[in-house]
């Protein structure tokens, strides 16, 4: 048991190797049971203290409110669409300092973009694509709570079909479909792309470790069960993540060197309604009457995804 943080780069294989105490400090203003905060906690332990976060507007920008910060090092706030551009500036500055001999190797920082899905799937996509094009050496962590959380959970490009949001209040919820950000990134042929979530800490830690060892643009896309926006009890945050994996709604996978590998394939997938039925944002699919049409459609889409993988 290591007391604080992951201090060496020994390959992570077992849950027990993960630190008992996170390096991120307590006292943040995130909601009780925030699945996004937990994912960041777990990732930060592996990244270590030599990390600078470049954070676009969203829930997590409230992590650092002067003079309080849970981080051990620097943090930079950017406009919603501009975090990858901010990361470019920071990376360049570090490189310039190193080239001038003003930065020791052990002082170098891992530049990490931290944004919600509103930025990652929508507003910030152009800046992201530009950074990928320039082969910027950075890690992008997106905590995907499937909506604009900080402003009251309006829909975003990551909102799943049929979910109720502050801007999709109609009878059938959100009419669109969740964007496939994993594939959008992979199509740019970056160094690394992975999906993850806090409920699978070992899978997440391994992926962050792998990402840390690579250079170039890298993405950790973490599904982040959000009790406030999804309407479930905070205590169920991890359970919700597990159900997302076991129903096949959130495939755990990674992309390296042009190849996509699934890191965890549920042997028998649970029906999607086990996941949907636990969240208030999908209540209208079950009450007052069962919306069989929508439920079947959602199930069919998940099945089609896995059929294509398993073929």
């Amino acid at each position: 048991m290591r007391p604080e943080g992951q201090r060496d780069d020994k390959p992570i294989r077992k849950l027990k190797q993960l630190p008992a105490r996170h390096i991120m400090a307590s006292g943040t203003p995130m909601c009780a049971g925030c699945g996004g905060l937990e994912a960041i906690n777990e990732a930060y332990d592996v990244l270590g203290e030599n990390t600078i976060f470049v954070n676009a507007a969203g829930c997590m920008t409230l992590l650092s409110i002067y003079p309080y910060t849970p981080f051990r090092g620097s943090w930079l706030y950017t406009a919603m669409a501009a975090a990858p551009a901010g990361a470019q500036g920071v990376r360049d500055a570090l490189d310039v300092l190193a080239a001038k001999g003003k930065l020791d190797r052990d002082e170098d920082l891992e530049v990490v973009v931290l944004t919600g899905d509103g930025s990652a799937y929508g507003m910030g996509l152009s800046a992201t694509s530009g950074a990928l094009e320039r082969d910027l050496d950075f890690l992008y962590i997106c905590y995907d709570n499937e909506g604009y959380g900080n402003t009251g959970h309006q829909y975003s490009g990551a909102t799943p079909h049929a979910a109720r949001t502050a801007t999709s209040r109609g009878e059938h919820g959100f009419g669109g479909y969740k964007k496939d950000l994993f594939s959008i990134w992979a199509a740019h042929r970056p160094a690394y792309v992975a999906t993850a979530l806090a409920a699978e800490p070992l899978d997440l830690a391994k992926k962050v470790q792998k990402a840390k060892q690579l250079k170039g643009p890298r993405l950790i896309l973490a599904l982040s069960p959000c009790p406030t926006g999804w309407d479930f009890e905070p205590r169920d945050a991890l359970e919700m993540g597990r159900l997302a994996v076991e129903t096949g709604v959130w495939p755990l996978k990674e992309y390296v060197d042009g190849v996509v590998t699934h890191t965890k394939v549920p042997k028998t997938r649970l029906p999607v309604e086990r996941y949907l039925g636990r969240q208030g944002r999908f209540r209208h699919l079950f009450e007052p009457e069962r919306d069989t049409g929508q439920l079947d459609e959602i199930q069919a889409r998940v099945d089609a995804y896995w059929d294509a993988i398993e073929r």
Partner: peptide, 20 residues
């Protein structure tokens, strides 16, 4: 088995003592 409860605490508010 503190990795079951302390590890996933989002607020890092379960501290593990020397005895685990």
């Amino acid at each position: 088995c503190h990795w079951m409860c302390a590890l996933p605490c989002p607020d890092n508010a379960l501290l593990v003592d020397d005895a685990g």
